[in-house]
């Protein structure tokens, strides 16, 4: 059997917020279970390789637009998704895989259209802080999502996709929902990296990529459980503080 191929997409453009860690988490969790895995950091000066699982991260404005243009002309990501590849896209990456996104100058750019999401620039302050969301929708059998958001975008999820969760603390998409998913494509505003803080989401994506219906063998995520409990406690304090100050 060919090894599972995990591709971190353009880390030099979409690697500003440590999201390359998502690829590391996926590759390690697969290999710890004895699954032959290859982790590839794919830079934008080469054709995007064929893969089973693609990770896109957050990035600054100019690199975000550049990455969107290169991915569109490269074509591999769209073809792979059509063939069943799994995508996890965070922040700027999430905006890129939507239909359109708006840059800091107010210019709209076409996205890759892999998720039915449109992102505009928010008029208010940048959303920076802990983000907590409750997963919603059938097929997303995972616990509370925990992450750290840092973005100025407001995203609207269309009928072709569904929100990943309902926001408990933070901003997320800006309308009370957070992220989006459709088929095997997931977008989120959670850094952390998101899969380090949410190992159940990592295993869900791995299960999709491996084509297995039964849950993967547990890995003893004790310290992840402690980290999650700590961050959820910290976020709830943050929320009560914020409500008081308004």
């Amino acid at each position: 059997m060919a090894p599972l191929r995990v591709i971190v997409v353009y880390p030099e453009l979409l690697g500003t917020y440590g999201d390359g860690g998502n690829g590391v988490v996926l590759a390690k969790r697969a290999s710890w279970r004895g699954i032959d895995t290859t982790l590839i950091e794919a830079t934008a000066d080469q054709r995007l390789p064929e893969g089973d699982l693609y990770c896109l991260g957050g990035g600054e404005d100019a690199p975000q637009t550049e990455a969107a243009e290169i991915l569109a002309s490269d074509g591999m990501l769209g073809r792979s998704v059509a063939n069943g590849a799994v995508v996890l896209a965070v922040c700027a990456g999430y905006q890129i895989i939507g239909r359109t996104f708006t840059d800091a100058h107010g210019v709209a750019h076409p996205g890759l259209g892999l998720l039915d999401v449109e992102t505009k620039r928010g008029a208010g302050r940048r959303a920076v802080g802990e983000l907590v969301a409750e997963p919603i929708g059938a097929g997303l059998d995972i616990p509370t999502l925990s992450g750290f958001e840092n973005h100025a975008g407001l995203s609207v999820v269309g009928h072709g996709a569904q929100p990943l969760g309902r926001v408990r603390v933070g901003v997320g998409n800006g309308d009370g929902t957070e992220g989006a998913w459709s088929g095997r494509v997931v977008g989120t505003y959670c850094h952390g990296p998101v899969l380090a803080r949410n190992p159940a989401l990592a295993d869900l994506l791995l299960g999709w990529a491996l084509g297995v219906d039964t849950p993967l063998a547990p890995l003893g995520d004790h310290r992840e459980e402690l980290l999650r409990a700590e961050r959820l406690r910290a976020a709830s304090r943050f929320r009560s503080w914020r409500f008081r100050s308004h």
């Binding site: 690697g15 917020y17 440590g18 999201d19 390359g20 860690g21 590391v24 920076v128 802080g129 750290f148 840092n150 850094h191 952390g192 990296p193 380090a196």
Partner: peptide, 9 residues
């Protein structure tokens, strides 16, 4: 900096 995600870099 309140976001330690950089640990992964």
């Amino acid at each position: 900096g309140r976001d330690p995600s950089w640990l992964w870099d």
